[in-house]
Simulated scan of single mutants.
Amino acid sequence: MPSYAAPRRAALSLLGLLALVSAAACANGVEVRPGPARPAASATDGFPLRADDALYAVNDVNLVLPDGWRAIGSDGCLAPPGSAGDPQDSCPPTALRIRTGAAEDGHIDADGGSLDEKDGWKRPWTVCPGSVGQVGSVTPEPVGERERGGFELVSGERVESAAWTLACADGRPFETRIWYVPGADIELDVPIVDPSVGGEEYERIVRSADLSRYLG
Score class of each variant (00 low, 15 high):
A169E: 15
W179N: 03
D189A: 09
E175L: 03
G171E: 09
L166W: 03
A162H: 01
C168W: 07
G183Y: 04
G171T: 10
S196G: 14
V190N: 08
G183K: 10
R177C: 05
D170H: 03
D189H: 13
T165A: 13
A167Q: 14
I186R: 05
A163K: 07
A184W: 01
P173M: 12
E187F: 02
E175T: 15
D170Q: 07
V193N: 07
D194S: 13
F174P: 02
I192F: 09
W164M: 02
A163Y: 03
A169N: 14
D170A: 12
E187H: 01
D185L: 02
V193Q: 03
I192N: 10
D170E: 13
I178Q: 06
W179F: 15
R177W: 00
A167K: 14
P195T: 08
W179E: 04
A163I: 08
V181D: 08
P191V: 09
R172V: 15
F174M: 08
A167T: 15
A162K: 00
T176G: 09
R172P: 04
D170F: 00
P195V: 12
P191M: 05
A184L: 11
D170I: 05
L166V: 11
R177A: 11
R172Q: 15
G171C: 10
V190I: 11
G183D: 15
G171I: 06
I186E: 04
P195L: 10
L166I: 09
A163D: 09
T165R: 15
W179H: 11
